[in-house]
Amino acid sequence: MTETASSHRARASRLRGLSTRAGVHMVLAGYTLIAIFPVFLVILNSFKNRRGIFTDPLGLPGEGTFSLEGYATVLTQGDFATYFSNSLIVTVTALFLILWLGAMAAHALAEYRFRFNTLLGIYLILGIMVPIRLGTVAILELMVDLNLVNTLLALILVYTAQGLPVAVFILTEFMRTLSRDIKDCARVDGLSEYRIFFEVVVPLIRPVLATVAVFSMIPIWNDLWFPLILASGDATKTVTLGVQQFIGQYTVNWSAVLASLSIAILPVLGLYALFSRQLIAGITSGAVKG
């Protein structure tokens, strides 16, 4: 191949590379806009008065249209502080239980040989295929019997049961890949099986625990079904249910509706901005290993 021919070809491929790159960016940027714009629009308009919302929905809030009246209505009418603390208590407690109990069970399944090991493993991950919601009728009866209706504990227990199968599945798979030597060393050093779990295994699985936390957290925080059925009382409402019912009452007050939506969105976006790097790294690495 002569030198000119190869340089021609290099230039052609560079040009093609350039147009491909432009195409890639157009598709990705275009879809990013579609993904973000609706959220942006709601937050933008929540800072406007009624006139601003309707006459110029796409404009920035400015003189004559800027207003916080929606937020004022939401903060005086709705009990969003309570809803937030309820959601937080339920999500954090359930997440803690899922990770702790899930990791212990996964450790037992991955580490020890005992009768029914495989069978128990299959039993524990059945819940991935069978959504817990299908047992709602009986769950409500059970909660009535246990006197747990309208308590946060009811939600915590159900979400823990809901999250365990995925947690056990991912953690068991990962724990099987851990080296046995390090645990056997610890055994030789005389550590008890419990200390081996807490002091040797848990530090090793920390990155996977983060992945499982993300996977389990989103459906719990966003769930509408169980709060609606098990804990719809004023004192136990979660944010998702609170917003849903608040909007149901204030459908005609657009600034209040937009403000309540923004109040529910902003903390999630804030947390996401802080943790998105870890979160996405966790999802991708977890999926590769799982």
Partner: peptide, 9 residues
């Protein structure tokens, strides 16, 4: 909270 309710249903 998961298996029993499913069976009970």
């Amino acid at each position: 909270f998961s298996i029993y309710p499913l069976v009970e249903s």
